[in-house]
Design a protein around this nucleic acid. Sequence first.
DNA 1: AGTTATACCCGGACGC
DNA 2: TGCGTCCGGGTATAAC
Length: 269
Amino acid sequence: MPELPEMETYRMLLTPRLVGKTINGAAVTREKSVNKQAEEFIAQVTGRRITGMTRRAKHLLFHLEQDKVLVLHLMLGGLMVWGTEAERPERTIQVELYIGADNLYFIGLRLGYLHLHPLEEAERLLAKLGPEPLEPSFGEGDFKEILGRKRGYLKTALVDQGVFSGIGNCYSDEICFQAGILPQRKIETLHETELTRLYHAMKATLTEAIRYGGYMDVPLYKGDVLTGGFDSRCRIYDRESEPCFRCGTPVMRVDFASKKSYSCPGCQH
DNA sequence: AGTTATACCCGGACGC
DNA sequence: TGCGTCCGGGTATAAC
């Protein structure tokens, strides 16, 4: 599911394609995906220029003229396709934006949404999110202090958007694997050196995932060779029973706290 | 404060 | 090909 690296990839790829352009129109085939009546949503985005693209956690923000912002959360299974009318995906499309000669198609918005807010309101809605793990100012000391305040399972804290933002099911497992720590460890049992490893694993894993375009399997546009490059670099996620890349032990799926989680019982402790 | 349960939502994968 | 069934999973919320 789209997490921080996937949304950051979308942000990077869409910025040169959208910023400075004007939304010529829109279509809403699933009204629940937007926060207004379809006609009102279309009327309010049409004619507005896109002034910038930013990301906060798993949210992608389309900044529009006059301090309006479209806040996108893809939740489970949501994705975007950028292409001409002829390249319209053979999928159910919930929302589409017409921008220049191309369309931006929003697909798989079941629980996901594209909400239009005044900038102030959007900021207020996003204010309760935890710090961005890749902010350069987010240091090892901050990481240890924040995690040290929590109890319970390590994985639960990693995917908690109020603790660190943007990490989901896949990357929490990848981070734990890289750090050599089991996701079902209780936070209070983690040693100083393990916290250090987790901090560096978090930075390294997310940075690498962004560099390779995340693990989404549908290209954003025809000829997009970046999106999804991390899929083949996932070390642990969704590899149940396959040999661990580090020690050969079969990867185990352990479900706890109503989450599925993959780890290696051989080299994660 | 942590933990668990539940609702949300429906496309698409799967089985027959 | 067609039709019915059911899963997925981040987030908000409530209850314990």
